[in-house]
Design a protein around this nucleic acid. Sequence first.
DNA 1: CTCTAATCGAGACGGTACGTCGCGTCTTACG
DNA 2: CGTAAGACGCGACGTACCGTCTCGATTAGAG
Lengths: 220, 220, 220, 220
Amino acid sequence: MKQEKTEHGSSAQPVVKPAHISDTDSHRLPEVRASRGTDPRQVRSAAALRQALLDLLTEKAFDQITVREICARAGVHNATFFRHHADKEALLNHVAQDEIDRLVAISFAHGYSHKGFLALCDYVAARRILWRALLTGGAGGAMREELMQLSMALAAEYSDYPTWLPQELSVICSTTLIVETLSWWLKQDEGEYSSEAVADIMHELVESAVIAPRRPRAGD
Amino acid sequence: MKQEKTEHGSSAQPVVKPAHISDTDSHRLPEVRASRGTDPRQVRSAAALRQALLDLLTEKAFDQITVREICARAGVHNATFFRHHADKEALLNHVAQDEIDRLVAISFAHGYSHKGFLALCDYVAARRILWRALLTGGAGGAMREELMQLSMALAAEYSDYPTWLPQELSVICSTTLIVETLSWWLKQDEGEYSSEAVADIMHELVESAVIAPRRPRAGD
Amino acid sequence: MKQEKTEHGSSAQPVVKPAHISDTDSHRLPEVRASRGTDPRQVRSAAALRQALLDLLTEKAFDQITVREICARAGVHNATFFRHHADKEALLNHVAQDEIDRLVAISFAHGYSHKGFLALCDYVAARRILWRALLTGGAGGAMREELMQLSMALAAEYSDYPTWLPQELSVICSTTLIVETLSWWLKQDEGEYSSEAVADIMHELVESAVIAPRRPRAGD
Amino acid sequence: MKQEKTEHGSSAQPVVKPAHISDTDSHRLPEVRASRGTDPRQVRSAAALRQALLDLLTEKAFDQITVREICARAGVHNATFFRHHADKEALLNHVAQDEIDRLVAISFAHGYSHKGFLALCDYVAARRILWRALLTGGAGGAMREELMQLSMALAAEYSDYPTWLPQELSVICSTTLIVETLSWWLKQDEGEYSSEAVADIMHELVESAVIAPRRPRAGD
DNA sequence: CTCTAATCGAGACGGTACGTCGCGTCTTACG
DNA sequence: CGTAAGACGCGACGTACCGTCTCGATTAGAG
């Protein structure tokens, strides 16, 4: 079973991959596989690959992109790619993981507060191009999956915030709202909406949708 | 450029495909492609393929599924698949399109009212297995894309409902909330939540998040 | 093993084909398979097919020709073809067999005499178009094979004519020379060479090459 | 128009093919296609394929042979075949071309002399198995075509030898006689006829059939 | 002049081979 | 060691033709 290794399937383990590699083999992923090497060539290759992927993501869907295409763009040989990453997906993860981690960290550092959302928006705004590639480019689906999983994990520890929704659904909804809002924002022209405005929107959305106590209603 | 033809890329034209029919050998899709034929064989093949896909979707991600796998499962020859559908994606569309259309129709038939959501939930509940396959199975990403696109299109005509959000974002958020809630629901054990309960949730979510006028708040 | 059923392989049984057909089946080759039917429809179809093949043979090689192509040209349905002939090859045989038989008959009716060659050339000239299609068109290889086989068979009975060559080789050479000369002739503009001239050539060729007693030579 | 690409059709361009090389994945023929690579793997694959074809040619007709069959026999992957050769035909050409070239060279090095024919026969005898496969195996038709074409080309330069036949026909006849004699010879048990004997036969055949001045005859 | 049976048109289908494409591995040689 | 270069195994793809198989709709030609 080879094929496409999609990103949103149930099989979407975030990163690692089983490794199934006899380390008797010399030219193989050198430890943590993720650019721990300090060899300048390694660094250059890794950077080139990352950038190439981001470039391409602005042009086409993630899975329309070929490993060899990335390599060509990066000016790097095919085989070299696989010395750095097990997969197209792995590269995407490497590109995205840190960003996501930091993003999530920032978001949760302040709880579901306006300050938190503002920090988040500022952070994303500062890396607008990268995030635009990641979210609105071809990797959108994968990124959402990824963010969702992390959010679920984090939320498991945070599980005591108030919500009128079933716990799990509340996480889904808030994450989804945040991500969609971000995606929407990044599709707008820059400057159209300020970080503050978007943070406001996010805050309001999450607050009113997920957290706010159910308003009594007469029906509709 | 062949490759994966993923489902969530920018290239995800909903359905049609040019059809480029040429010769006489039945070797190309028979006009409208969608079961216009009354030939019993054709009907049987088409049904078998549809069902096979749904079966497989409960087991693995959409793009881990092979055309040949579908055929094997359907007891239909490889070539026959392509006489019916141009693609794996095309088959998915055929399977999903009617459902989606009806779903959207129902949803919009009542506007964003509780009655509408209830109809929607009832409809999905009645076809729980199918929809579970579509939404929580491997085709989830594609389905969301599809639904989003249709919603956007429909919303363009409906553009006068009240929302405190930018128009476009409001559509995104409401669609997203509905779809995510549905997905979540279908992952629960059957009977865990009633259609009414879920309709309530949806209604409340959309109402409070998207439509409700911004409540004055003291801040946080 | 399906594929191409070439004509010059060891598997090139002249005509018949094993039949392997349960005659419980109604729509199947109606007896001798060869147009014994007097039904005008049948006759029309058969004629159309024959002609279509000949047409096409003037344009392309025999095995570049598709059954469905023949049918299209003949204005006859695909299935109908197979009601008449088991194969593309079978059709070719039907088209060619009578001709070949008659040709060989004529040729051998007079032995290797000038009169025999003249009769042969006259006969071919009278059916120039047909024979051009058969020999210089795409079926050339097959026809040569066919002729060779028949010649060998006939020669087995005739085995007492004088030749300085090994018996078998003499048949090969004479047949080959005749056929090649015919082919060459049919490629020339009509009227360029008369039947008599070509008969002369043939006679001379066969006579001097195959039959004539070895001349004493001084060497070369 | 795909299909069979037979070997004796009018479309039998000797070798080249446009080459339409484009991308970097070695997925297209490496320039001159003919074993220019020194990579041991490439060499091994190429050799294996050649040999596999020759093996199979002793067993069945050329166009009954499948590319995948050749690959299986050669222990080489399907795709690899096409990295080396565009076609089954291309492989055959590669196998045959050198041989033919050398053969023709030898033959013409001495003109139509006895010495020339002897050299030719010796050469073929030394490679009896290969030539048997090529001439009497399934590729016979193609080989004859090929040889005929080359002979015609060469003869165009040599056009001043004496013959009582029309120039073109003389080339056809002599080539045909030589090839048929060779084929016949290779079908005999080895040692049945010596190279000298066969060279004699050839010489005599060509001499008396094509070159010798027309003997005055009384008629028959 | 029907009525019955053969023939045909239409076209879906199973089947086999094709030639292409992208992935990930591996070998060789270089710096 | 890390790379470039690129052949290779692998396996899915989508196409092309083949010959078979319903189905009707005609259309003979025999009663």
